[in-house]
Design a protein around this nucleic acid. Sequence first.
DNA 1: TTGTATGCGTTATCAG
DNA 2: CTGATAACGCATACAA
Lengths: 372, 372
Amino acid sequence: MSYPKSTAFPHQAESPSVALRRSARAKRSSTAGSSPKRPTIRIVAAKAGVAVSTVSRYLNDESVSPRMKARLSRVIASLGFKPSRTARNLSLGLKGCIGVVVDSIQDPWFTQLLTGMEEELQSRDTSLMLLSLELRDRYDPAIAFEWIDERRVDGLIIAKCHRRDKALVRAALDAQVPMVAIAPDEALANVDVVRADNIAAGRALGAHLVDLGHTRVAFAGGPRVSVESRHRLQGLREELRNRGIRMREEDISFCASYEAEEGAVFAAAFLKQPVRPTAVVLGNDALAIGFIRAAQQRGIEVPANLSVAGFDGIPEGARSWPGLTTMAQPMREMGRDACRRLFTAIAAAEERAAVQYPMTLVVRESTSAPRR
Amino acid sequence: MSYPKSTAFPHQAESPSVALRRSARAKRSSTAGSSPKRPTIRIVAAKAGVAVSTVSRYLNDESVSPRMKARLSRVIASLGFKPSRTARNLSLGLKGCIGVVVDSIQDPWFTQLLTGMEEELQSRDTSLMLLSLELRDRYDPAIAFEWIDERRVDGLIIAKCHRRDKALVRAALDAQVPMVAIAPDEALANVDVVRADNIAAGRALGAHLVDLGHTRVAFAGGPRVSVESRHRLQGLREELRNRGIRMREEDISFCASYEAEEGAVFAAAFLKQPVRPTAVVLGNDALAIGFIRAAQQRGIEVPANLSVAGFDGIPEGARSWPGLTTMAQPMREMGRDACRRLFTAIAAAEERAAVQYPMTLVVRESTSAPRR
DNA sequence: TTGTATGCGTTATCAG
DNA sequence: CTGATAACGCATACAA
């Protein structure tokens, strides 16, 4: 049943270009009518008795007389004509393709974003190229630089832009490749930014915990440099203070990354304390999930012994037990918006802007009133 | 801090085509030297003192004299020339883009697959279009049909092809759009198929459980029509029988889908039994995760009271507690292979094939010896 | 092996 | 408002 290695991968022998050329040749020679050959703008023009330029205008500007519109509309429908996006792109000097860069495609946070982008790209008939910066277990932005240098993409979306990506951002800026950053870890000048309102989210989560009766709350963010984490902490701290609770410095820490493993690492240290906070807020859901796993491993019951909450609202948080209380980002909408902004930037280099989306509190089982 | 709705979405006002045309116009008129204008094959030819066709051949056939090769290689390097993929595609009648269809992009199973595709597509400089068949909460393959009818993609990869997708497969076949199916739920004729060896995987998991000392094992698959589930069960059953254990019909069932929710539904029924098996194998990891959540919710300890295992090897299974014992598929490699096969199919309509990849046992915390 | 000429399907320019 | 024609950058018959 298992496959013989020798026949399982016979596809590397031939270079891509050679293979594709053979394809085209075959297509042209096989005039055996097998392919009905799609109609072109020229055929439409001929059948309508007008010039191709008129058809082109009809397709774009619409600066055509009503009578002409009606006629062309009929001819196009009867022919089933669909303009060739490839030819259009060649003429316009576009690629019909945008690049999407992220640390890892596997990140569930990104997956939701991608769903939003999918929606928007479909309606534009634009394709995308994906790049995981850590695909091969080490940071490697080389391909992104190629995209920029060789203008292989019409624009760039960079998700969770870190400090280490600064060179990438600069390259895109220099090459005048339009770019949108989603939830960058740092403030970015001259770049469209789409992110959630983290300060407000921190406040909302703080309110939730205070309402439950907690009086000592810990926070463990992602990397210390992450502005997202700092804002979440800021909001949390503000809300607690407004409610008369002052966070202790010893209850505030930062993890090496936003990965679940680091949440577990933090848990190991945190749970050693003889007397500890009754609730802990992690910098994101992944950290929280890693934290809860480590806590359960040690026999700590969540939320009976300890309330835990996160940020992002990834689906995984709803599938585990206890379900994770979190501040959810409107990821799908943010993904759509990032695409829209990118397209307007591609169309015309206008002024950059930054938006903030509100997050919504999702209460599940990982938070409860503290034990008295 | 939160955004005013009126300014958050100013991007829908203009039609995509109008916007893009403005862009091109701007580019051409702004001859202010801002864009260094990438060199073309014609410029290379001129600088090398040869015909463009020679350069083209150098780029593709390589049927060029060694001296010419050396010269062109130098010129191309000095100019930093990169061929335009758009122009190449137009000439070859290709799109430079493949379509990838799946029930939901959010499926972690698919996410791993996508990572493999990413690798392969990068090296080919090909982009992709994504389609979630259930993006808008109901099955809607309309866009996939458009891709096929309008030849908007050079080929199609369909992940987890179900019975309901038969019309799609037939349309692609009729339109002669090359296609590769990954882990289809049914047997498919005339289509390249990439899947894991589910029978062997079922056996391996059965061996693991018998080795632990289990003598009564239950199985709950995905939909009854799924050939993947049936094969997994078949392998499991065979291995148990070989070890002298006969599965009871009452211990075999199927879920309405492969989603976590259905695992929880099954758990509700399963856990009602006064006397029950000491181990349960779910049709995939998602079902197993849903099952475990429901079990924990009812105070059942896994694996102390019940061992649980799944198939697929999604990352989430490693992040929960207890970690999920599973048969892992080489998803990344399968994603790569699917792309490779698609490209060979695009290059030349050869005979179809089917491969099976071996799965590997990953033992985590959700399985243990049964309580005596 | 190399050069010439033409085609791929669309848009932009400039007359009419 | 409409038509003719030159790009866009590359591939390929065919001839040399």
